[in-house]
Write a protein that binds this DNA or RNA. Structure first.
Lengths: 334, 334
DNA sequence: ATGGAGATTGAAAACGGTTTCAATCCATCC
DNA sequence: GGATGGATTGAAACCGTTTTCAATCTCCAT
């Protein structure tokens, strides 16, 4: 691989001049420029990105850390982030934390040492604030709410409203015995949804019934099973997310419980898959693409020194009614 | 961020010595070492990875390029690759080519310029051989077969055998009118499966019936629809992959076609999702984790200068029978 | 002719590590 | 007592860019 000095030698100029034509950082005589470009073209020279990063202390790399790429919600998010990053001229490094704070820290450390320009992270750390404070480069929090004081940048959907919408919908569908499968409460997203559920229950005079559940298939299967045993009269299930909802539907189908006739199910996220399942899933839709795009745009702006006026962006959710729930007809009501 | 020279100054040694204790590349006096380590600990010094890469012309980064992270097959593969890479001390950069050869080349270019140590790629390039030849760093081809001459490293499942197994299974299930939804024939994986299908058809005296289909949900929905119109008597569908099979099942369910009673379906890949669908999918299982682990192990070995004796690894597939197919009972046979 | 101003250019110093090479020190061996 | 040799160490070059700073050149107004 040729170096810039080699190009300079062949074009009878200094490396500085080659750098200038490469980056357009200063005017160079058109004739000289043509000569340099010719040599570059002929040799197929490509500047070494590492040397460039070292010199500029910037790599045009954005790191993205998610709990797990196995959840389609995060891969769809990552796709949106990548698209926007790419559009703005950044490369994206996608990292899996496996919900392991240590691995998460290791990746942050790695990214900083690679001169990454920014980090977009859905942290699983209990102490989000410490993380943010310790990070010397722009960071935006995805899908989680940092505590007020840190005033970190964050983009997320309105999970509280989502919890409310889902619960209200099940009530509208005639459910009397709604059980919520709560995601891990250390995540603000899960906590907010639960809060929305509880508030609606109180308003409607229902007693909240809750089951803890991780955000994955395996635990979804397990917890659905125990849920059915613990609450034999359940007629509505609010799944922790779509992936869990899929497990719920799976277990119900295996037990020949008719959906939505006996039990109605609502998911959360509206991943692409939710419309392809059989039956198609009623769910709370997050604007996944908008969240990802916005997060990437914010880091890019920060990297380029454009201060963002608004630090916290909470995007609206929407109820998407499909086949796992059924609005009660007025005449059915006694 | 402190530099190595700063540490050297504080520890009253030269940068060379600090480097030596950091890397263990040469013996240093225990007392000196202790002094250096103390300073490192106190300052929280972390070596700059970029400078290190530049100097060593190696970054301990492995690039992984897949067509799309939206297909769970590739995310599961990526997870396995990441785990093995991580275990061997490499970072993984995951890139989406979107099945766009230009984007693919751009990523390869980027990786080379970042001093990536190796590349694992599921290429969508028609001319795989040119790609491989042009790449100055270790590369292993995933899920595709390079042409004999290049003798590039590759890891893949036995797609031909998979095509055969699936077809034979449908025949065993009593299907007389099997239609294959072929993936894009420019991919050797799709071509091999088709070949397996055709061979079994010939052996069994069936006439092959084929429909072209991309490897994604959207096209799966579209092509299932046209398939049903084109072949009204179809009683067995061989989907291009599990993702397409999911679409097939979706369309059949929407049209109230009973599965497997009227039409039986077999997928390909055995992604995690296939067991969670309703009905659970009969499919040809690829050893996804083994493929990923092996690919990562091979690049790592190559990077570390251990020549691999065997360039091509073809791993076995297996038939996984679930609910979308039904073996014919002997007594049912007339 | 002279003095700037502005346009081009190159030398050299970064950036923050690693590595080669030679120097120094000290113990050991004839 | 001097030669030998191994263990430690540091100076300096190097990796391949960018960037600062000063030098040179050109052109034009005075």
């Amino acid at each position: 691989m040729a170096t810039i000095r080699e190009i300079a030698r062949q074009a009878h100029v200094s490396p500085a001049t080659v750098s200038r034509v490469l980056n357009g950082t200063a005017a160079v005589d058109p004739q000289t420029e043509a000569r340099v470009l010719k040599v570059i073209r002929e040799t197929g020279y490509r500047p070494n990105e590492v040397a460039r990063s070292l010199s500029k202390r910037s790599s045009r790399i954005i790191g993205c850390i998610v709990p797990t790429i196995a959840n389609p919600f995060f891969t769809e998010l990552a796709r949106a982030i990548e698209d926007e990053s790419f559009r703005r001229g950044y490369k994206l490094i996608l990292c899996n934390s496996d919900e392991d704070p240590a691995k998460e820290e290791a990746y942050i450390d790695m990214l900083e040492r690679m001169n990454a320009d920014g980090i977009i992270i859905t942290t699983t750390h209990e102490d989000m604030d410490a993380l943010i404070k310790a990070c010397p480069i722009p960071m935006v929090i995805l899908d989680r709410a940092p505590s007020q004081e840190t005033a970190a940048y964050s983009v997320r959907a309105d999970h509280y409203q989502g919890g409310r919408l889902a619960t209200e919908h099940l009530v509208d569908c005639g459910c009397q015995n709604i059980v919520m499968m709560c995601g891990p409460q250390k995540y603000t997203s899960a906590a907010k949804r639960l809060q929305g559920y509880r508030d609606v229950c109180r308003e409607k005079g229902l007693v909240p019934q809750e089951v803890d559940c991780d955000f994955d298939f395996a635990d979804g299967l397990l917890k659905t099973d125990s849920l059915l045993r613990q609450f034999p009269d359940v007629d509505g299930i609010l799944a922790a997310n779509d992936v869990v909802a899929l497990s719920v539907v799976k277990v119900l189908a295996a037990q020949k419980v008719p959906i939505p006739d006996q039990i109605q199910v609502v998911g959360f996220d509206n991943i692409y898959l939710s419309q392809l399942m059989t039956p198609a899933l009623t769910t709370i839709g997050q604007p996944i693409t908008a969240i990802g795009t916005m997060a990437a745009a914010i880091v890019a702006d920060l990297v380029e020194g454009q201060a963002q006026p608004q630090k916290t962006r909470v995007l609206p959710v929407e109820l998407v009614i499909r086949e796992t729930s059924c609005l009660q007809n007025p005449e059915d009501k006694q």
